[in-house]
Design a protein around this nucleic acid. Sequence first.
DNA 1: GTGAAAGCGCTAACAG
DNA 2: CTGTTAGCGCTTTCAC
Lengths: 350, 350
Amino acid sequence: MKRFMGRTLGEPTVHDIAQLARVSLGTVSNVLNGRPSVKQELVLRVTQAAAQLGYRRNTNAASLRSNQTDMIAVAVPNIENAFFSEIVTSIEHLGIAEGKGVMFLTTSENQDRAQRQVHNLISRRVDGLILVPSFDFQPMIRELEAYNVPVVLVDRVERENHFPSVAVDNFRAGYLGGKHLFDCGYDEVVFLGGEHRFWILKQRYDGFSKAAEEAGRSRLCRAYELSLEPDEIRNASLKILGGKKPPQAIFAASNLAAKGIIPALQSLGLRVPGDIGLLVMDDFEALTLLNPGVSVVAQPSAAIAATGWRMLQSLIAGADLPERHIRLPASLVVRGSTLPLGPSHLKVQQ
Amino acid sequence: MKRFMGRTLGEPTVHDIAQLARVSLGTVSNVLNGRPSVKQELVLRVTQAAAQLGYRRNTNAASLRSNQTDMIAVAVPNIENAFFSEIVTSIEHLGIAEGKGVMFLTTSENQDRAQRQVHNLISRRVDGLILVPSFDFQPMIRELEAYNVPVVLVDRVERENHFPSVAVDNFRAGYLGGKHLFDCGYDEVVFLGGEHRFWILKQRYDGFSKAAEEAGRSRLCRAYELSLEPDEIRNASLKILGGKKPPQAIFAASNLAAKGIIPALQSLGLRVPGDIGLLVMDDFEALTLLNPGVSVVAQPSAAIAATGWRMLQSLIAGADLPERHIRLPASLVVRGSTLPLGPSHLKVQQ
DNA sequence: GTGAAAGCGCTAACAG
DNA sequence: CTGTTAGCGCTTTCAC
């Protein structure tokens, strides 16, 4: 077969099949798309001809004509983060199950880059987009509104969202975590890494804060907003935990925060849960590999993905969404890093 | 704007631009593709018209006509595994830097699923494919050969490969790790998880084995081939390590193996490096979060990705590859899980 | 039920 | 340097 610039030239087309099978173009198309109303014999002739020629469908041409690609795009900040890679993997599985294609891209939390990337896929006429935005993605979202493309926002929702959205209920997640810590008997708890530019992190803090109030311990609890960079969080943690009066427990606002806090804990020689309790929002693998395992407030990532998928498919089908903004419940997974404090309060049952 | 089945109808086309800007189709195309030979004034008229209409290019149509998509596909087993997610991320960055699109898919180590997925992308006429195969992907690879699509194999290479390939030098990686362990003074070392269906894991073992021989300790070293499932590896580790004569050190053949070994170590109460040394092939984040950090033989994932990318671009350009099979060197990262043994051999300097 | 013809949106070739 | 024309591979009317 001849090649030119890396592309295969003179590939067999429906035309060639029609000729070989001695049927017309329309029939070939009908057979290839599994339409029922074709005589058995012709089906056979066509499929055999196709196989014989080594025919492979040109989906781009089909999309051009039929004006639908059966592809959706998924944009997440990165896939290093377990939560996002689970979302991506779940959606890919859904796509396979329903025979639809899925294209991924990562935004690196960068508006310009994301906009270019998304633009690229949109220009390939994906049927819709599932997007995990960053806090400054307004320009891109505005553009998507203008293009009138079906979009579902996932995870990083804002107070108000133009597009439909699905995420964990962050307020209740924060509340759940806070309640667990106070139920354990921890009085002084630090909520670490609740970067307020991300509305969802603020929500987590607000939930935590409500739990502290209800437990009558709001005076003893502090919050530290920090960047999302584990290194910065690590340095800050070192200061907070290395002071003369370190808190009794830490609630990490995100898995990124945890990645800064854990090394800090270790380098200070603070044992968990002996010296300090640790609870993390958003599970990831290392948390189970640590000894003892770290307790978490886990997000239902598969359910979030499935809900986002379903919403997008409805949008694509032109249906109305019964609920435009869905919030799913988080769950508490208690491992060894948070323990009920005994009567003497800093003594640990081990 | 009207919508039908989720698609936007009546979108502006080059035609509309030509009409509004009062130029011809060819000129519009020239402007839109940044060809230099257009009068400044017309460029302006065209770009303004495009903006005014909210024009967005239909890349599929362009690809159909120009017979090149400027897109490549990348297929990895999964993105939960840090090595693969790094490969994917690196390639995406390269794509952005060079203005080419990248599409990902995961194979789940499943030949049938992979074949369907790859077929799907191939039918969209990607310019080439970067593939991390599984040991039983021969049918798919055969199909790709028939289609004459540019392909580069990454990581999971076999003894003989039809397509060009790039991977870490697994034999030398195994040797490097083994040598480090024997230099530390460990006599009895178990190489765990070297699933021989994966030729690269066997290579790692062979390298390790050679180091054992050179150190005169081959009699004391054992190897266990196991599945890639962390759970199975965990159970096997429990047996091996729980016996009356556990080895002095473990060399985990892969990060998957490590994910089974580490929980086993913990549930047996074996301390690292106090009771036993641990070295892992293939780095991942949890290894740095553990205390002490786990020593690894690290793969140059970014370099592997970059090399694969470069090779594929050459192939697509129709150039010949100077080297069809590239093997990159691994590097040893010593953290706290492997320590030089003192004279009394099981005593640890801490 | 099958065949012929038109055209999706774009680019490439060539004429002016 | 600009305009016209043809056609990429497929699907989709609409006759038959």
